[in-house]
């Protein structure tokens, strides 16, 4: 039994290592459905009661270091979020759009690591965005850990890096996101 597990682990490890550097999800880069715009910025600032005037006040922003209205830096991830298909979103487990077929994470699901817990989010902001800019993002797997025993059960940490660009492929920021894929029953292969 232990021997079978060892062989299984090697095969799984090989499958997982082959994912490193590969895109997360399909269909290439995500392009923001709308350019950076004042209404979405105002909506965001109101949601968090963030009264930083460089986000909404042209005069104050013009006299600031930025010289014009800028988007909140941590809105970076928001711009490329897909326009959701709300019908059926609960049945899809919260996925905002229809997804078909195999995703890289399916490999982990099949190996018994069916549960997901987000553990870390890290942003590097190279510059703030201006109204009218169109953001694109592309995400690749950075690392998948060996199996670890965690508080949640046996699991593997999966890290992906999203690179955000604007026109002419200028990189404006990066996000590193880590999840724990774990076996809620404690019996992952």
């Amino acid at each position: 039994m232990k021997g079978e597990h060892d062989v299984g682990d090697e095969t799984l490890d090989e499958q997982l290592q082959a994912l490193i550097g590969q895109p997360v999800g399909r269909g290439g880069p995500s392009v923001a459905p709308d350019p950076v715009n004042q209404p979405m910025i105002r909506h965001w600032a109101a949601a968090f009661a963030d009264d930083n005037p460089v986000y909404v006040d042209p005069d104050a922003a013009g006299h600031s270091r930025f010289g014009q209205i800028v988007a909140p830096p941590l809105m970076l991830q928001t711009w490329t979020m897909p326009t959701p298909v709300l019908e059926g979103i609960a049945e899809r487990g919260g996925s905002p759009v229809e997804t078909e077929g195999e995703t890289a994470l399916s490999v982990l699901d099949r190996a018994g690591y069916t549960a997901t817990l987000a553990t870390n989010s890290e942003f590097e902001i190279l510059r703030y965005l201006h109204v009218g800019e169109v953001v694109s993002s592309s995400t690749v797997f950075e690392s998948i850990s060996e199996e670890k025993q965690t508080r949640m059960g046996r699991g593997r940490f999966v890290t992906w890096v999203t690179t955000y660009t604007v026109e002419a492929d200028e990189v404006v920021g990066r996000q590193t996101f880590r999840i724990l894929k774990f076996d809620p029953t404690g019996t992952a292969a």
């Binding site: 963030d50 930083n52 830096p73 870390n120 902001i125």
Partner: peptide, 21 residues
């Protein structure tokens, strides 16, 4: 980011944020 810039003001630029959930 609001917590940071409420203190640092409108001329602050947040260049890195790393959180553990």
């Amino acid at each position: 980011s609001r917590f940071l810039t409420d203190w640092a003001g409108p001329d602050a630029m947040v260049t890195r944020l790393a959180i553990r959930l």
